[in-house]
């Protein structure tokens, strides 16, 4: 993946397992966001391919509709909370009754029940991120791509978001790819971890293995917070 003359991602070969929480960690500017955007078809790789359930991805909208990308700073439509959360269902042509039921469930999961009629742009930062979460999960995506979902939040909201991530995986078996540089968060919720530094995926392993016995000096330095970048 090349932007201008800068190679942002280099020969990445990665398999994400169904139903796992995979944490993609690395310093700011390491290429985490670009990688998620690539998976969600906002960027195209110069070479290589993306496979979904073993199939080469073609027909972007059909594959894209089976996943969801949550941005670090959520973009909020100038509408009510209900209409924001219902958006993904509406564009899929789902009937009104089902939309009401699913939106209500999603708002319940993120702890925003009763706020459906509120103007979404009046929510606090933490509430807005949780609303964006509800909007991303309301249509039961098979894959949830999360780009630093707690980067701008206070500890209480960080805990709430982490609880939501764990709950969604448990109840819906959603595959979750979490891009973050928050190491304690990775310890708390990830199953497997990939370390991305300067666009290079230098190591992939289970959480326990990678924290106990990092296979690369750069991984060790980053995980211990000793990497200067």
């Amino acid at each position: 993946m090349v932007f201008g003359e800068k190679e942002v991602l280099k020969d990445i070969n990665l398999q994400i397992m169904r139903g796992e929480i995979f944490a993609l960690v690395g310093p700011s500017g390491s290429g985490k966001t670009t990688f998620l955007r690539l998976l969600n078809f906002f960027e195209r790789p110069e070479k290589g391919n993306l496979e979904f359930n073993g199939m080469e991805t073609s027909g972007i909208i059909n594959i894209r509709r089976r996943m969801s990308l949550l941005f670090q700073t959520p973009a909020i439509f100038n509408k009510s909370v209900f209409e924001n959360v219902a958006y993904g269902l509406k564009v899929r042509g789902i009937d009104k009754k089902t939309i009401e039921k699913k939106v209500s469930e999603a708002l319940d999961i993120v702890g925003l029940s009763g706020l459906g009629n509120q103007k979404a742009r009046t929510l606090s930062g933490g509430e807005a991120q949780r609303m964006a979460f509800a909007r991303a999960i309301v249509y039961d995506p098979e894959i949830l791509l999360l780009d630093e979902p707690t980067a701008n939040l206070d500890p209480a909201n960080v805990m709430k978001i982490e609880e939501i991530i764990k709950r969604i995986r448990k109840e819906r078996e959603t595959t979750i790819l979490l891009a973050t540089h928050n190491i304690p968060q990775v310890r708390r919720i990830a199953d497997r971890v990939g370390i991305l530094i300067n666009g290079e995926l230098i190591e992939v392993n289970t959480k326990n293995a990678i924290f106990k016995n990092p296979g690369d000096n750069r991984s060790e330095a980053f995980l211990k917070g000793e990497m200067i970048y």
Partner: peptide, 8 residues
């Protein structure tokens, strides 16, 4: 981009 990622 949010429209697209939500399947629009």
């Amino acid at each position: 981009e949010t429209v697209y990622t939500l399947g629009g």
